[in-house]
Nucleic acid binder design. Structure first.
Lengths: 166, 166
DNA sequence: CGAGAAGTGGGTAAATGTGGGGAATAGTCC
DNA sequence: GGACTATTCCCCACATTTACCCACTTCTCG
């Protein structure tokens, strides 16, 4: 399915659903206030609206120590559908379900564009003040800023080891 | 597919799609102003328009400490398509996504031909005043001028050691 | 040299991000 | 059950950043 995204932050080009086009772009450093609210970058919200209909996101934890946020459609397609390919008793599925699927919450930004993350997710990802939103294809990540930097060092090592052999 | 690039900075020669012709040619030293804006060399913009339809570029970081800028088409073909061959949960893909894909932003030059690079990319590449645009095949690089010079010294050593053995 | 293109600097209005007050809601303890 | 507390939601106000515009200098080329 091809379409046009009328969004100044995205390429105004035809894209193929879920394949060619990066949705959430860039790294955005925002600050979480005392109440636990953080601003979702405006460009992300615009993507959510333009491409997914509204600003809802499903937020859950990721096993690298950050949070992942998906538009509901992507959540269904990538997380749920992926998991459901496996047998109910598959141990990887059971772990995945407990760790990733269970703690998920659906957030809707307020009028200022902020979401309130539940304390459980905040403490898991060690979020307190400096929060980094990082775009991904079809989802975005929410990081504590120092944890992210440590992760990037590891990523560099991984990348320099070369891509996986098929 | 053959065509003509109507551009006074490029040779007005026929070129074969993606093979023979270098698109972004030469090194151009421009200065970034206090707001973080830099002028994209006019010849690069002309190439973007003539060959890719408009002046958008996807800018991201590169392992070597500079920024890479791709026309969206090349970005999809060279970066995204490559990545999306791998499973969502492949660790190499996750690292690649975080290091290369996440920080990418799409920039559209303003009326004067300048792009505003986000602070995260500027600080990664150590850009402040003297910025060097260097052409490449299908993309171009954006360097801090002194970092670039240091890189060139290393490149000389590498080149004199001879090409890799097959 | 003169004209046009390229590159640079700055002002202003709009968009974005941040802080905080108070009403509504839920949850807890006597 | 009723009062108290904590949390969430909704609103307004402000600081900062960005997009857009105009003016100017420098460079290139005939």
């Amino acid at each position: 399915m091809w379409g046009i995204v009328p969004c100044k932050y995205l390429h105004n080009f035809p894209f193929r659903e879920g394949v060619g086009r990066q949705m959430f772009q860039g790294e955005h450093k925002n600050t979480m206030d005392a109440k636990g609210r953080v601003n979702v970058p405006a460009s992300f919200r615009e993507t959510l609206r333009a491409r997914y209909g509204d600003e809802q996101v499903v937020v859950t934890r990721d096993y690298d120590g950050c949070l992942h946020a998906y538009p509901p459609k992507e959540w269904d397609r990538r997380v749920l559908a992926n998991m459901q390919k496996l047998d109910f008793n598959d141990p990887w599925r059971r772990s995945y379900e407990r760790f990733v699927v269970s703690p998920a919450v659906t957030c809707v930004p307020d009028k200022q564009g902020r979401i309130l993350l539940p304390l459980s997710l905040r403490s898991f990802a060690d979020l307190d003040k400096s929060v980094l939103f990082a775009g991904g294809a079809g989802h975005f990540e929410i990081w504590d800023i120092t944890r992210r930097e440590a992760q990037l060092e590891q990523d560099l090592v991984m990348l320099r080891s070369g891509p996986p052999q098929p």
